[in-house]
Design a protein around this nucleic acid. Structure first.
Lengths: 111, 111
DNA sequence: CATTCATACAACCATACGGTTGCATGTCAG
DNA sequence: CTGACATGCAACCGTATGGTTGTATGAATG
């Protein structure tokens, strides 16, 4: 199961443009933290922290290759977040159809 | 279009269990801020702030009814967030199929 | 083994966030 | 008009976050 703090971490991790971009770049994989850092106007350490946040949220994994740390995005994490949003929409659809039923019933009562 | 700061606000808003619960409750609509507040172990003002955060992220809207402020969730906002996650998965699928192609080509070269 | 490159990690700073209380405003009931 | 109720908003407080710099570790290279 996915606990609430887990969900917190996933959405919080995605609430930063730099981190979203890291996720996007790391889909292709192959870049180390240092290479990733070159894309952004901030220090290596800052990018390292962003990767750590994504890792805690299980949105990326790190894999040691020689002295480099290659970052890979974990699509399962993304899917978990998406399915949560799906659930809300599911709820909403349910409510709409119930409302439609209600309206239909009313019409039938009126008729 | 949806700008990066907008996306920031949406994910940041969803990164809190109380706010996610407000979104869920407000799908049904009908509850005012005060009524919502009774569900949580915090002050009215705190809930009011949470609603404000959700409103800035366009995840809910407020509608005045007499002296009450009824909160409704805006499913469009949820859908926008979900479609963003879909895009990442789309990218990922693309990368996989490209990798598959590559492997296929290699096999053919080997054969 | 000394050097260098990539990463890790701690300390520090400014700002943002989640909560509180207190007070002001606006709307309904008598 | 008064009082009560629901909301809005500002000030304040502790902690988390996003950035910095500096130092330490570990792996490849000459």
């Amino acid at each position: 199961m996915t606990t609430a703090p887990d969900v917190d971490r996933v959405f919080a991790a995605l609430a930063d443009a730099t981190r979203r971009d890291i996720v996007r770049r790391a889909i292709g994989g192959g870049e180390g933290i240092g290479e990733l850092a070159e894309h952004y106007p901030m220090s290596f350490a800052a990018v390292q922290k962003h990767v750590a946040v994504l890792e805690r949220a299980r949105l990326v994994t790190k894999e040691r290759t020689g002295r480099r740390m290659v970052v890979h995005t974990n699509v399962e994490g993304l899917r978990a977040a998406r399915s949560l949003l799906d659930q809300y929409e599911e709820l909403w659809r349910g409510r709409i159809s119930r409302m439609t039923e209600l309206l239909t019933d009313k019409k039938e009562t009126d008729a």
